[in-house]
Amino acid sequence: MAEGGVQEPFARAARQREAERLGMLIFLASEVMLFGGIFAAALALRLEHPAGYVDAAHHLKLWLGTANTGVLLTSSLCAALAVQAARNGQARWAACALWGAVALGTVFLAIKGVEYAGEYREGLMPGMATTHFEGRTQQLFMNLYFIGTGLHAVHVTFGLALLAAAALNRGARQDRHAMLIGNVALYWHLVDVIWVFLYPTLYLAGVR
């Protein structure tokens, strides 16, 4: 959207850039409220079943979750570097950093897939023939876990598509204001931040 110069109804490019950035931030605020519902549900579940919640969280693969946190944070760093590179006029560096972010994001999804597969084998995936839970609270926790991380994974996938689109877009790479790359990076940071909250809510809760 940003690269084509000034568009209706704007008269000045600077004003249009401010508007696009503001629009992105408002959209992200909306996304935060979306995940707020998941966190509210997790909080209620934990308050009502303190012991069962911790037990159920203990079954998650903590080290996979931790690795994924590192991967996603690094990916976010790449996105931030891409913005900086574009602002400095280093279009090629910007593209490299973006592809780095895409690669790490893909690694995140791969690890998540491995984790899901393990949970499927253990019979912890809801709605499958092999499903068997130790108790109702564990079932409830795992359901919430799948909804929360699943919704997050959808956002990751969408973010990856945006990052790739930005990396492929020559105009975006050469834009010294890094409008498109900046907005995509903002979105990617939000995806990261949501994970940074999901990680303690789901994984760290099981650490004794």
């Binding site: 009502e48 079943h49 012991a51 069962g52 108790g135 109702r136 609270t137």
Partner: peptide, 13 residues
């Protein structure tokens, strides 16, 4: 109905 919700101290669920 939900015996594991609040387990008494010193007992297994």
């Amino acid at each position: 109905l939900l015996p594991n919700k609040q387990v008494a101290a010193g007992y297994r669920p």
